[in-house]
Write a protein that binds this DNA or RNA. Structure first.
Lengths: 211, 211
DNA sequence: TAGATTGTTAATCGATTAACAATC
DNA sequence: TAGATTGTTAATCGATTAACAATC
């Protein structure tokens, strides 16, 4: 099975190819794709080999064919539903970000403990009370959840989403989740990311001998 | 110099230690820290060796001393300012997320092209017009920027922030930035992250032989 | 054909893990 | 002391890069 890094790059290639097709370009070389994706051309070729897509020597890769191949590899056949847990500042930004982007991978239900938010429709998505989470996720056959609740409730939110049938979690709460091994967890820790950048913007200054 | 992954883990250890100190615990073993950080105890020891902090055999690590050592290693001596570029849904969520968290690493200025947002104070942060970005960043001696603008303006926003004096960038725009090598860039691509999770929540089902 | 591109294999690199010595 | 923990070195693993063969 393809590695996590490979999947990430494949989604990036798809985005670039979608722009390329708008420019009316029919085929593309690995080094062009690599330059736009910030990767090496060897990397691009290896990734595409991994999904079994073959290019033409001399002509490169057929843009439309490659997009179709990526779609078949990356997307679920009948589309895939996503649940959002936590409709605070971050949760609403997540809803806005994904609203109307990719119909085959859309946020179909949101959940919050705040009774004031329940029943409202935010960026086209209905907000349910937290105690309905297992039922709604099961009914809507949702397999992916985005956790955007405070640290204290993140573990519980994830466990309940999994009981509903979720198999993969995008976790914005800055705490490691302790979940079964077969559940895929992707962490986005904005605080850690900012601290890392801050450290290196300082450290790079130190490297500079002139200062 | 410490690797990116190491820095990320060190910030995580600090968070855990800060909770630990609230419980009145004075020393901690590597395996306890490892369990809470989702790492291995060997990993923890190696990371702490890297910053030159030594534990006591048998007693483990002194919590207060380790926190202080992490602070010296990770934080800039006089505090560090951060700029936010783009005060849309995501930008406002970022402001809310970091508001009042860590005084030594705070968002000190925000920028937006929308004249309606300029002059307003959002989550305690003043919003400036985009054409003031070089000046304000230079005046406030800001070294780190968060990019939360649409894809089309991300490259330009980053370049202008750098002209003001920024050395590190946290980029939320789903596009690779083409910047000088000495600028540290950390990408948070929510779309890619969600696609990855969606892929693996599906792929894991395939692995399951019973389905 | 010659040249440029893709596909494949070997070499390199970095990070992690495992094994062991040192310490209280 | 014995046992448990830390510090250090060697082995392993995975991903990337580099070198080369195959193709149009």
């Amino acid at each position: 099975m393809a590695s996590e890094k490979t999947i990430g790059r494949l989604t990036l290639y798809r985005r670039i190819l979608n722009e390329t097709v708008l420019e009316g370009i029919e085929s593309i070389h690995s080094h062009t794709l690599a330059a736009k994706a910030g990767a090496s051309s060897a990397q691009v070729r290896r990734d595409l080999m991994e999904i079994g897509y073959v290019g033409h020597s001399r002509r490169g890769y057929d843009v439309m064919g490659l997009i179709e191949s990526l779609r078949e590899f990356l997307d679920a056949p009948g589309g895939q539903g996503v649940a959002l847990v936590g409709v605070g500042n971050l949760g609403r930004a997540v809803l806005a970000y994904f609203a109307g982007r990719r119909p085959s991978l859309a946020i179909r239900a949101a959940f919050d403990v705040d009774s004031q938010k329940v029943g409202r429709v935010v960026h086209g998505c209905r907000c349910w009370p937290m105690d309905k989470i297992e039922d709604v996720i099961a009914e809507e056959q949702i397999t992916t959840a985005v956790i955007a609740v405070p640290v204290a409730s993140a573990q519980d939110a994830a466990e309940r989403a999994i009981r509903g049938g979720v198999r993969g979690i995008l976790n914005f709460a800055p705490v490691p989740l302790d979940l079964p091994e077969d559940i895929h967890v992707e962490n986005i820790d904005m605080g850690m990311a900012l601290e890392k950048v801050a450290y290196f913007s300082r450290a790079d200054q130190t490297t500079d001998q002139t200062t």
